[in-house]
């Protein structure tokens, strides 16, 4: 269980004179909740997704992004310094290890690396990094007593990783069935030559395998035909229902929200959350567009 807290987040393109895109975003996403983030092109939705994940092309100029973990997966109660993580201080892979997942609008194509190899490597890297992050915290506490230990006895040989090949095959097969993905996917190169729809299915598959606390899905529904939209939606619902993942779904269309019903809907305008509401807000946007939101916001301002 976890909560992603975004407070007054401001960010610009990371270059001299770079354009300011986020102008004070406030948003909270907790496990088990599905949020839809809507808004016109250029309002900052994708930038927000990338900044949460730590993309180097953006520079944060103010505000905070915090991940609060609840200790139910640990035996003893979690100490405070392991409960609250300032994500802006962490590398993208460290954020991933803590449970942040970014589903890309345009996933990278990596030639020569099979899906199964990539996914197992990523899962093991995540588990290993996670262990390191938590050990570091413990070591700081125990600093006076002991200099700490180098590797945990839980780790297998470095190259093998925590999850072995055979075990991983099982996990992969199971998750692929949920998404109605062909077995052949596993031996294809990562996104290389995938159709738009296959890439999106693959993003959801990765989330299913990495079991994040919070998944930010950037236009996961764009370019999908109706069958694949259903597969992808099933996958997203399974993330929440089976793993308790909190979802922040960025979309332009009501269409996917018929399948993945949001608990909350937010409208982003000019780098800020302009309006929040329930599922009915999305329907209203579908019918009336964004202009009325803009008018409402600027009238009150």
């Amino acid at each position: 269980m976890a909560t992603l807290k975004i407070e007054n987040l401001q960010a610009k393109v990371a270059e001299d004179g770079g354009e300011t895109i986020l102008r004070g975003v406030d948003l909270e996403v907790a496990s088990n909740d599905i949020h839809a983030l809507m808004g016109p092109n250029g309002s900052g939705k994708s930038t927000l997704a990338k900044v949460i994940a730590g993309h180097p092309a953006y520079e944060v100029t103010g505000g905070s992004v915090t991940l609060e973990l609840e200790g139910d997966e640990f035996d003893e109660e979690m100490p405070d310094d392991l409960r609250e993580w300032d994500l802006l201080d962490l590398e993208p892979n460290e954020r991933a290890a803590l449970g942040i997942f970014l589903g890309f609008q345009y996933p990278a194509e990596i030639e020569g690396i099979t899906m199964v190899n990539f996914l197992r490597t990523a899962l093991n890297a995540k588990l290993e990094e996670r262990e390191e992050l938590f050990e570091e915290g413990e070591e700081e506490e125990e600093d006076d007593e002991d200099a700490g230990y180098e590797t945990s006895p839980m780790e297998g040989p470095a190259d093998e990783g925590e999850v072995g090949v055979a075990e991983f095959q099982e996990i992969l097969q199971e998750k692929m069935e949920v998404l109605d993905m062909d077995e052949k996917f596993a031996s294809r190169y990562l996104n290389a030559g995938f159709s738009g729809g296959e890439k999106k299915q693959n993003e959801v598959l990765q989330a299913a395998i990495l079991e994040p606390e919070i998944a930010v899905l950037d236009e996961i529904d764009s370019g999908l035909d109706i069958d694949r939209l259903q597969d992808v939606s099933n996958g997203i619902n399974a993330l929440r229902d089976e793993q308790g993942t909190g979802i922040l779904q960025i979309t332009h269309y009501q269409r996917i929200l018929d399948y993945v019903e949001p608990d909350y809907v937010h409208v982003m305008l000019d780098g800020k959350i302009a309006k929040s509401g329930g599922a009915e807000l999305a329907e209203q946007l579908e019918d009336d567009g964004y202009d009325w939101v803009r008018e409402e916001v600027y009238e009150t301002a």
Binding site: A96, F104, I110, F118, E129
Partner: peptide
């Protein structure tokens, strides 16, 4: 960045891209 966002650190991400390149 894509690989990093999946949990690989900077070095491992580059390593993986090179491995794929020479595959």
């Amino acid at each position: 960045f894509y690989l990093q966002s999946r949990g690989l650190d900077d070095d491992d991400a580059k390593q993986m891209i090179v491995n794929g390149f020479i595959e």
